[in-house]
Design a protein around this nucleic acid. Structure first.
Length: 480
RNA sequence: GUCCCCAUCGUCUAGCGGUUAGGACGUCGGCCUUUCAAGCCGAUAACACGGGUUCGAUCCCCGUUGGGGACACCA
């Protein structure tokens, strides 16, 4: 039972960004831990850039991560009337005033002020002109009381803010009558009873102006907590085209939601030495006091490690559910789950960091024809192994059951028949013949999951291939 | 330019006046081994700099440097 009310308020101008996802996660964790109410509000005031598609992408991204909300999604655009009426009230109270300065004039005066050593804030020209509704095209500005400090105790950054004299009278309403973001967020947060505003540190310096709006409206100022930004390599700003930033992109690349969540949680937050956190553990331990104050670089290598950790952790059944779409894409047809596939996935999970990679590695056992890597063929498919290969074909054909144990026995038989050949000398050529590459799970397991029919076909084909190339006087023949 | 913020291994971080400065990822080496992994063991590597305060500073204060954010009729 808690009165804590928080919100995640993304502007849907792209996809769900890792920074936004982390903000949502921290809000969610904080709220769930306290038993409060978490609200989703879409800040689509900028109609030009906001689309329904990206709004859907944001929602889908949150759902995928397992972040749920109690109220909403609300759309800020649907509250425009309320925003307008608040501006009107502020105007009536004298807490705001009309301003007829044009952009050009503003820019000019601002430049002149800066040149004269000023701060470039609005000079307050219209502040005391008492302009009425009939003043023509105008914006509405907040009359900021110069004597009050606009300070707050940030739950992450500590004492923050500045003197009111440091900022100018900001615009609340555009000349086209639409409200500005600052006014809209404040009004929405007041109306929705938000008690704790947890958001990106890019809003840290916007906060004084917003506090001024709260005061002008006469509402209680909520508690603020600003989260340091996630930065790109070497501290640079995250770039949408250069850096992987969208949650859907990570998803498409084969990262598991629990890995993403864990990774995001540890980006700027810590709980002692613990690295692995389930969603429940994040909620259990989350604490704003342990959110750092410096920007964090997105460490993709650690995400890969986490992803493999969760890949290894998943029950096979659920692993299949996750990898299935990737398998279908890699193989070109729907793939059904069976014992062999379970075994294969189990073998591959500790050899893959992402689902795409896992699907690619599973391909050899699920398709009829494989491509053999030319370098691998050249190195391992030589006439010297022909005898052993043929012995292996014979031994495998005669097996009454198809298991790693029986396959191993067949290998032993084949090696013996080839003059006590060492296992390694046979395993590698067979691996190349079956998987097309030099890297795969254990050779017996590899054969087992590939199935007898495909194994024998590929081995026979390989024998043919070696004969042909040896006869052609290929380099491979010289070694025999 | 003005205002605000930040600063521990390459990266994420622990630390909250006295520690051999800890963990994790990465990297490197070893073990294991039919390949690749996984696993296990080990190594590498940090308090940006300069002043204070203090018996004692990674920790507190000031400055410098570096980085970031905000300064829109964007959100």
């Amino acid at each position: 039972m808690s009165t804590l009310r928080t919100r995640f308020a993304p502007s849907p101008t792209g996809f769900l960004h890792i920074g936004g996802a982390r903000t949502a996660l921290f809000n969610w964790a904080l709220t769930r831990k306290a038993g409060g109410t978490f609200i989703l509000r879409i800040e689509d005031t900028d109609l030009e850039r906001s689309t329904r598609e990206s709004e859907a992408a944001v929602i889908e991204g949150l759902r995928w991560l397992g972040i749920d909300w109690d109220e909403g999604p609300f759309r800020q655009s649907e509250r425009a009337e309320r925003h307008r009426s608040v501006v009107t009230q502020l105007l009536e109270k004298g807490a705001a005033y009309r301003c007829v300065c044009t952009r050009e004039e503003l820019e000019e005066r601002r430049a002149a002020d800066i040149a004269a050593g000023g701060k470039g804030n609005y000079d307050g020209r219209c502040r005391d002109r008492g302009l009425g509704p009939d003043c023509g095209l105008h914006t509405v500005r907040l009359r900021i009381d110069r004597d009050h400090a606009l300070r707050w105790d940030d739950l992450v950054f500590g004492p923050s803010g500045q003197e009111a004299s440091e900022i100018g009278d900001g615009i609340l309403r555009r000349s086209d009558g639409t409200p500005l973001y600052h006014l809209a967020v404040v009004v929405d947060d007041i109306d929705m009873g938000i008690t704790h505003i947890v958001r990106g540190a890019d809003h840290h310096s916007n906060t004084p102006f917003q506090i001024a709006i709260y005061r002008a409206i006469g509402a209680a100022v909520p508690t603020f907590a600003h989260l340091p930004l996630i930065v790109a390599e070497s501290g640079r700003k995250l770039s949408k085209r250069r850096d992987p930033v969208s949650i859907q992109q990570f998803r498409a690349d084969g990262f598991l939601p629990e890995a993403m969540l864990n990774w995001l949680a540890r980006l700027g937050w810590s709980h002692g030495d613990q690295e692995i956190f389930s969603a429940a553990e994040i909620i259990e331990h989350f604490d704003l006091a342990h959110v750092g104050r410096s920007g964090a670089q997105a460490d993709l290598a650690k995400l890969a490690w986490l992803n493999q950790h969760y890949l290894k952790q998943r029950p096979v059944r659920e692993l299949f559910d996750a990898v299935s779409p990737f398998l279908e894409a890699a193989v070109g047809r729907p793939v059904l789950r069976d014992d062999n596939l379970d075994k294969l996935l189990d073998l591959l999970r500790e050899r893959s960091t992402r689902l795409v990679e896992m699907a690619e590695k599973a391909r050899f056992a699920l398709v009829d024809r494989i491509e053999i890597d030319p370098d691998a063929a050249k190195k391992h498919l030589r006439p010297a192994v022909l005898v052993a290969l043929e012995a292996l074909i014979t031994a495998l054909s005669g097996l009454s059951d198809w298991s790693t144990a029986s396959i191993e026995a067949a290998f032993e038989t084949a090696c013996k028949a080839a003059g006590d050949l060492k296992l390694g000398k046979l395993a590698q050529p067979v691996r190349v013949a079956i998987t097309g590459t030099t890297a795969s799970p254990g050779i017996y397991e590899t054969l087992e999951v590939t199935g007898r029919e495909r194994v024998l076909a590929r081995l026979r084909e390989t024998v043919q291939w070696i004969r042909t190339h040896a006869a052609d006087g290929d380099g491979a023949s010289s070694s025999s």
